[in-house]
Amino acid sequence: MNIFRLAGDMSHLFSILLLLLKIHTIKSCAGVSLKTQELYALVFATRYLDIFTGYISLYNTLMKMFFLWSSFTIVWYMRYHNVVRRSYDKDQDTFRHYFLILPCFILALLVHEKFTFLEVLWTFSLYLEAVAILPQLVLLQRTRNVDNLTGHYVFFLGAYRSFYILNWIYRYFTEQNYYKWITWISGLVQTALYADFFYYYVKSWRNSERLQLPA
């Protein structure tokens, strides 16, 4: 484990904690896309099936369990919690997330390293994670006035992806036979999706004003 990987994982953890904090203490999920959260739950559920088949480290297992638990908890809050579900912007969150799932699945059936059940699901989760943020970005753009917590949440998610790219570069030069084309390309696509958001986030931060995305 190198410093970039650790920083990436911590940003990811922190972004989820921010979101849970917002939902649990303020009892609001305004500006949060349920579509994106459902996609993440599906991403983790299909990727971390390997909890049962292989052991890497206690750190890996605990993180995987946390990501699984937190993603399903957030979806539960937004769908079923008496107070939280009322703050959900259902009419704005209209992205057809089903249209992302099917193409990712077909792509995983066609492009993978090995044609086995777990391997295809793992690949599917990589493709799906790359585009899972789209409903959230669309919702942010529609809401215009983004509240701070939601903005920070997306920022730390993007930071997580950026650190992972540094981690791959580092590992490529320090380890032998470290090639992961599928992971790299989907990771690059995913990070690129944040570029526009980052630009406006940094701009609003420098001018110390509220984050506003252009229509």
Binding site: R5, D9, H12, D50, G54, I56, S57, N60, M63, K64, F67, E113, K114, E119, W122, Y164, N167, N177, Y178, Y179, K180, T183
Partner: peptide, 10 residues
């Protein structure tokens, strides 16, 4: 056959 990379990342 090419060995698959160990999936040690999250």
């Amino acid at each position: 056959a090419k060995e698959l990379c160990k999936k040690d990342e999250l």
